[in-house]
Write a protein that binds this DNA or RNA. Structure first.
Lengths: 213, 213
DNA sequence: TAGATTGTTAATCGATTAACAATC
DNA sequence: TAGATTGTTAATCGATTAACAATC
């Protein structure tokens, strides 16, 4: 388990909340100089205790009687989340989702660097999308190695996802962002984050129905 | 809070896990007739107690000494999640993400029905994507009303997202699936599910870094 | 200084797991 | 019947909140 400031393990839920804190500090940047845990918690709909405890896992960023300096906290969170530290990634699967992510500027803004695109369809190989080339998926392993790719996005059909995963893990990629609607088979502790669009839509569907009795 | 079987409130975490159960039963369908909570829990990487307790919020689906009938459970979960019960939706924002979601067949497969697309850019109005027309966002409110749209997907820039939300809430839409990187301002208890792609990528980024010491 | 607000420890709350009687 | 496995209640674990001494 991941350790914080003084060796205390950081709960996974806290890690998953970090990007949200970053978003709020980014938003606050041109709006104020400082903010207290109380004010921030009201803004975010959390408790002030949670804000303070969450942040305290990573350092002593606040000051009694003052609160948190927004510029400083934003910079600290950026450092923690490696924003602006180029993280090289590839996208595997050039369907709708893969193509959309290729053009999604938010990745670049957050400091991610797209190195290559991959697909099986011969007709797509060589095509460029916003300046990035589509390669044969056969070349994935060697490409990841030679370009020291850090992270891969999986946007292939679920039937072939675990095949791709096997290749990626063998290639030495360090984490996977998965858009395929299944749980990937990865070695224990291998970093994976899932984006299950339909799962979210179905949960919403359930909530909507229940709300109407 | 949402109530289950005998009036016990169902924790939100359990609801969010339901689509995952559905995926597993869908996968199991042609592979076996029945499954025990023990076997299922091993497959899913959960505990058998959790499986049994989760499912028990919605009904008594199992049988002692036998387990759960896969076909039956899949059908029950489909009913609970309203799969195959057409849920009408619109997509607001025809950027990369909006366009990709328009063509994303998984929505149709899960029984969602795309009624219309919306954008502000005059040049896009009238265009059809996979048979669905793009309308002016000015027409959003009346469209939702006349077509009794249940759900909206927000895929607009964050700067205008809350404007769209205001229109949607006024129009009587019943839930929102949000892809914009911010927390939407909705009335208390209004169903929203967020898909924060960059948040997930950043959390992954953090996990990768920490894993390498 | 007095007021504000932190970081942290203790108390509480909620979710997960273990245990088991019921029963197929 | 004996073995398997449910649904549920009690015990445990972990996360959230409250409280407060420290201090800017």
């Amino acid at each position: 388990m991941i350790k914080g400031k003084d060796g205390t393990p950081i709960p996974k839920v806290v890690i998953e909340r970090l990007p949200r804190y970053y978003r709020y500090f980014d938003w606050l940047e041109n709006r104020a100089e400082k903010i207290s845990s109380k004010k921030l918690s009201e803004l975010m709909g959390a408790s002030a205790s949670q804000v303070r405890l969450d942040l305290s896992y990573f350092g002593d960023f606040g000051q009694q009687g003052y609160g948190y300096n927004i510029k400083k906290l934003k910079a600290e969170l950026a450092k923690i989340l490696r924003i602006h530290t180029p993280m090289k990634f590839v996208i595997v699967g050039m369907g709708n989702i893969g193509r959309a992510l290729t053009r999604y500027n938010a990745f670049i803004e957050a400091g991610f660097k797209l190195e290559g695109l991959f697909d099986v369809k011969p007709i797509l190989i060589g095509e460029k999308i916003s300046g990035t080339t589509i390669y044969k998926v056969d070349e994935l392993e060697s490409f990841v190695k030679t370009h020291s790719v850090d992270m891969a996005i999986i946007a292939v059909p679920k039937e072939v996802a675990n095949e791709v995963v096997k290749t990626l893990v063998a290639s030495g990629v360090k984490g996977i962002l998965n858009f395929a609607p299944l749980d990937l088979e990865v070695p224990d502790g291998f970093p994976v984050e899932n984006i299950h669009i339909i799962d979210k839509a179905l949960a919403l569907s359930f909530l909507i129905r229940e709300r109407q009795h």
